[in-house]
């Protein structure tokens, strides 16, 4: 990466944030939706625990904290790039994907800056939501400094896994022409197997074993389990190694697919 690429990368990464910033109504609506959703999720989990104190090794406070944080972590996916007509599938359908391969900035680097910008923008919302919820006493802080550090480390790697999973589904449309269903399936699968709907501790053993063999739980369940203290710190090295394995594997696979994808680009008319 050259020095000149950094400013263009910053500008590319800031596209979503700048677009949203210039649309106050969209930002207000996004904030409203997030606030209402958090409130509803808190109500649901308090109601579920009305008749019990501990379930699947999680207390009511731990479960509510987990559920709130899961909503916040999933927040970056709510960015609407479709309206800006800048999704991979739209570019392939409109034929404009060819420009990605004609610019001085390589396609895979443009994709990285754009996606990373989206994730940072979404996480800024998540951080704001976290601070408000923490101040309001809706969720608890991590039980120890070690748990906080374990959360930070596994969360960072989890975001890398999330990036590569989304990239993989976008790369798919170079071969399938359409990929909206693949993206949706990936979203549901990821939500279910990552523990976004509910902590994986609530699920039966076979389901947890299935999740352990896939990369999805690295994105939400692992970092949040450290945050609420459900996973002991002794598990940290093993979890980091597993997350690192997934990051390396997905990085190698997606890099290989980028080289193949360039050969699949067809300008309008063939």
């Amino acid at each position: 990466m050259t020095i000149l690429a950094v400013p263009s990368g910053w500008r590319t990464g800031a596209i979503t944030a700048v677009t949203e910033w210039h649309s106050p109504s969209r930002m207000t609506a996004a904030g409203l939706r997030l606030a209402v959703h958090l409130f509803l999720v808190v109500c649901l989990w308090h109601a579920l625990y009305a008749g019990t104190t501990v379930s699947a090794g999680l207390t009511e406070a731990q479960a509510v904290t987990y559920a709130v944080l899961a909503v916040l972590i999933v927040r970056p996916r709510a960015n609407d790039r479709y309206s800006a007509r800048d999704t991979v599938i739209q570019h392939i359908n409109f034929g404009t994907i060819v420009y990605w391969f004609l610019r001085p900035l390589p396609a895979r680097r443009y994709y990285f800056f754009r996606a990373a910008g989206d994730q940072v923008y979404g996480l800024a919302w998540a951080l704001a939501g976290y601070l408000v919820c923490l101040a309001a006493g809706v969720l608890d802080p991590p039980p120890s400094a070690g748990a906080a550090l374990a959360f930070a480390a596994t969360f960072a790697l989890g975001q890398a896994v999330t990036y590569y999973l989304l990239l993989l589904t976008d790369q798919l449309c170079f071969w399938t022409i359409k990929n909206s269903s693949a993206v949706d399936i990936m979203m549901f699968t990821q939500n279910l197997l990552s523990g976004a709907y509910a902590a994986l501790w609530f699920f039966p053993g076979w389901f947890q074993a299935l999740s352990a063999a896939l990369p999805f739980q690295a994105t939400i369940n692992v970092p949040l389990s450290f945050y609420v203290g459900r996973l002991p710190l002794s598990e940290l090295p093993g979890q980091l190694a597993l997350q690192g394995f997934w990051v390396l594997l997905l990085a190698a696979l997606t890099r290989f697919l980028w080289t193949r994808a360039a050969g699949r680009v067809v300008a309008q008319g063939g």
């Binding site: 579920l48 625990y49 008749g51 019990t52 379930s55 699947a56 549901f188 699968t189 939500n191 279910l192 709907y197 509910a198 609530f202 699920f203 039966p204 389901f207």
Partner: peptide
Amino acid sequence: SIIVFATVLLGRFPG
């Protein structure tokens, strides 16, 4: 995914 989520909650929080 909805069924799995619902049945898990039903199993953990009956009644």
